[in-house]
């Protein structure tokens, strides 16, 4: 029971992270490979402010989102001249920068020792935690669905499809990109806080390339610019490696096998059907 609950909670958290990633990548066309760094920023903000400074839960959540949002604002501004794979590389290298800061700023982040995170009493129980995650997932999914179906969502699609044409129609494409990525980063930052509470521990290596590949796999399997696809894919991608658990393998084999599975799935979907299950848009 505990196992199922924890797995479902994890799916809830990852679903929101992946949905907000899709807002930037699929709906707006920003190839942002530093998404996991926003998650890390949220997780560490929460770990530090809640456990060490004793700030209240709500404030910590909002600040986690805001910090990620501000950093995203800086990133998109710094990368404003990059397009295509150079944008991907610029954001990826930014992800490395954040990662290395978290590793190195030992006095604040605990470096490679990581940080223990206390859970607030009201979500200490697994069921309560799960209910909170479901609540957040429903709220964020609703907000994202509303955004992408609104005229604002159409504008994002215009920026994705042809930025020059969007500008010729009088749309401030740069501002639109900023808005999209800040929303995406804010939600991810909040979920980073939730993840920190869920794991009760944060470590720099939770936020490296592996997590990026997991999220990429979810979004590509589900399909770009499809929220429903991302939701379905989160279940598929997080449940598949659970099969490994029942084969009674030692954990030293399960760890790498999981990663091998994800990389192979991502490669296969890119090779065979890069539009994913419900994708509406192709990667360029």
């Amino acid at each position: 029971m505990y196992y199922v609950l924890s797995l479902l909670t994890q799916i809830g958290i990852y679903a929101v992270i992946a949905l907000s990633f899709n807002l930037a990548l699929g709906f707006t066309g920003i190839i942002n490979l530093s998404h996991i760094s926003f998650l890390a920023l949220g997780a560490y903000t929460t770990a530090i402010l809640y456990t060490q400074f004793g700030m209240s839960f709500g404030v910590v959540m909002v600040l986690s989102g805001l910090l990620s949002g501000c950093v995203a604002l800086f990133l998109i501004y710094a990368c404003r001249k990059l397009r295509g794979d150079y944008l991907a590389l610029g954001t990826l290298s930014f992800h490395f920068v954040i990662y290395s800061f978290i590793r190195n700023l030992e006095t604040i982040t605990g470096g490679t020792r990581g940080l223990i995170v206390d859970r607030p009493a009201f979500i200490n129980d697994g069921i309560n935690f799960f209910i909170m995650v479901v609540g957040l997932a429903v709220v964020f999914t609703f907000i994202l669905a509303r955004i992408v179906r609104s005229p604002f969502g159409t504008l994002l699609g215009a920026v994705r499809d042809d930025e020059k044409l969007a500008r010729a129609l009088g749309k401030d494409s740069q501002l639109l990109k900023v808005k999209a990525i800040v929303i995406s980063a804010f939600i991810t930052g909040v979920m980073g806080g939730v993840l920190a509470f869920f794991l009760r521990y944060v470590h720099p290596d939770f936020f490296f390339l592996y997590e990026l590949v997991t999220i990429l796999t979810i979004v590509i399997i589900g399909g770009l610019a499809s929220l429903r696809g991302t939701l379905i894919a989160t279940f598929i991608v997080l449940l598949i490696p659970e099969i490994l658990r029942f084969v009674a393998l030692p954990s030293s084999i399960i760890g790498p096998s999981r990663q091998i599975l994800y990389s192979i799935i991502l490669l296969l979907i890119l090779l065979i059907h890069s539009r994913g299950i419900l994708g509406k848009v192709d990667l360029h």
Partner: peptide
């Protein structure tokens, strides 16, 4: 000729 590949004609016109 530029076009929004994945938007409908209606969406094109709404944008304009």
């Amino acid at each position: 000729t530029r076009i929004f590949t994945y938007l409908t004609i209606r969406q094109h016109m709404e944008l304009a």
